[in-house]
Nucleic acid binder design. Structure first.
Lengths: 334, 334
DNA sequence: CTGAAAGCGCTAACAT
DNA sequence: ATGTTAGCGCTTTCAG
């Protein structure tokens, strides 16, 4: 790999002239510029980022940590953020935490060692000291989808409570009372808020909420649905708090030859690709993933690049309840 | 950020002792080791990767370029590769080429500037000189899903020709003769092979192949299906050469209230999440994405880390034809 | 406007 | 076994 010095020698000028031409830092005489450009071209000079970073310049690499890269929601996040970063001259170091806080901590450390200039994260844990360490080092953080408590960071989320409340109310308006809420993670903010929104709506309507927690202790979606649909509860509607759960419900209903909305009405979070395809199509709470991600990247970049030091922001974007057949809104066509 | 020197001073030893303890490069007296570890702990030393890289050590960062991070197939690739890299102490710089060769070229350049030690790519273009440049710099490359012509690189793909041929034959065995093949990209290797496999099977069965190319010039999936299903051809079966196309077909059939397999039988490439959920579920050609990606990462790591210099490999993994209802194999339950 | 020198943090090579 | 030195490629600083 040719270095600045090589170029300088070839062009018969000093290193700094070359550096100035490469970076456009200062005006150079046309004569020198011509010679430098020729030399640059000739040996196809590529600057060494490691040296730049070592010298103190920022790295033009952003870090991005999500729980799971393959999950559609997070994949969309990654895609938008990477895209926005790229458009602004930044590359993206992407890592998956696998929902494991210790791994996330380790990943933050590795990224800091590699001199990222900013970090976007869908945080997994609750003990956020590793993020605090980043901020202390001058690496700004933006959290997406979930807030990052006790850390000076911007935050872009969705109002899950309101979204869930509205979805539940919609089911109530269809006349359902025995509505169950399926949740599979009692610890993440998102899920908690969704359950809370459901509970709130149920309480307001004076009907008893019934949260079915999916987990190793409490049983699978199938177990819970067996209980809830056939058991004494005889639930008539289901609120699934994630695409994973929505899909599981769909599979269950299909396997048991149950129809929506007659055997069970369904509203699911996340507009997953299968939702619109089944019969009847599934009513979903759609999140503005792309906008969330894009704005997160933009905010981070303004802090990183323009050194924006203003007070941290917590932005809540609205969700959309997409009415399709599964809640009972339209007649199934078949 | 504390440096090695800071630690050395605090511990009252030389820098190299610290370096040796940190990297475990050589034995150090227990006495010194103890002091160093204490100092390390005390000021929470984190090595600066930029300095290490500049010094000549490898960067422990892999590059990964795919056409689109959000697409399920590529997202799964990213996920597996990132995971495997992480397990081996590597971080991953991920970029999307957006199917644009120039962007891909630029991304390779940026990654090389950042001293990646290896590159995995789902290549987009055909003029692969930028990859050749990487190889010349000693950065090994592994291509996934598509071969990388004229570049010394390992390659992990699927036998698309055979897969497509088998799928077509399966439709033929169901008695279909007027089978159309939907394709949307006449330039990528994958699609070409799939079309070729289809054509081969049709020719062998002595029936005329009919490839419907989707594109700005040739029309949308809906246009083509209007023509093929209702027109003089009266096609009875469809081979969709990608999940995107399969989904589009499903939407079309749903909108026109057509049933599978009676109105039209369908086999699609890629086992997308909706495929198993619709009625009847869709028969698909499933690719071993995870294995493809994992093995690609493993191969790259063996070259990067163990300096494996053996002859480049081209590995073809088998696909699986997952028989469900849409081809006519099982009766729809409803 | 241009060049020379210093040094970012680290480790290979040498010296003790 | 441990310490010292040099220098990776770049840019900031200072001198011309």
């Amino acid at each position: 790999m040719p270095t600045l010095l090589d170029v300088a020698r070839l062009a018969g000028v000093g290193v700094m002239s070359v550096s100035r031409v490469v970076n456009g830092t200062r005006r150079v005489s046309p004569e020198v510029e011509r010679k430098v450009r020729a030399a640059l071209e000739k040996i196809n000079y590529q600057p060494n980022e490691a040296a730049r970073v070592l010298k103190g310049t920022r790295s033009s690499v952003l870090g991005l940590i999500v729980p799971d890269i393959a999950h559609p929601f997070f994949a969309a996040c990654c895609s938008e953020i990477q895209q926005t970063a790229w458009e602004n001259g930044y590359m993206t170091l992407i890592a998956a935490s696998g929902h494991v806080e210790d791994r996330e901590r380790h990943e933050v450390e590795m990224m800091l060692q590699r001199n990222i200039s900013g970090l976007i994260v869908v945080p997994t844990g609750h003990q956020n000291d590793h993020f605090a360490a980043a901020v202390r080092q001058g690496v700004p953080i933006v959290s997406v989808d979930r807030p990052l408590d006790n850390v000076r960071s911007d935050c872009l989320i969705v109002n899950n409570l309101v979204a869930s409340c509205e979805a539940t109310k919609h089911l109530l308006q269809h006349g359902h009372e025995r509505i169950i809420c399926l949740a599979d993670d009692e610890r993440t903010h998102t899920k908690i808020e969704r359950v809370n929104g459901y509970t709130l709506a149920m309480r307001e309507a004076n009907v008893a909420p019934r949260v079915c927690l999916i987990g190793p202790m409490t049983g699978s979606v199938a177990d819970q649905l067996d209980l809830a649909l056939a058991g004494p509860l005889r639930a008539t509607a289901i609120l699934a708090t994630s695409d994973i759960l929505g899909l599981a419900v769909l599979r269950y209903l299909q396997a048991h030859q149950l129809r929506m909305p007659t055997d069970a009405a369904l509203i699911s979070f996340d507009d997953f690709s299968g939702a619109a395809l089944v019969t009847p199509p599934v009513t979903v709470v759609q999140q503005p993933v792309e906008e969330l991600a894009r704005r997160a990247a933009t905010m981070l970049l303004s802090r990183v690049r323009d050194g924006d030091d203003s007070e941290v922001v917590r932005l809540e974007l609205p969700t959309r309840l997409i009415l399709r057949g599964s809640c009972g809104c339209k007649k199934s066509k078949r």
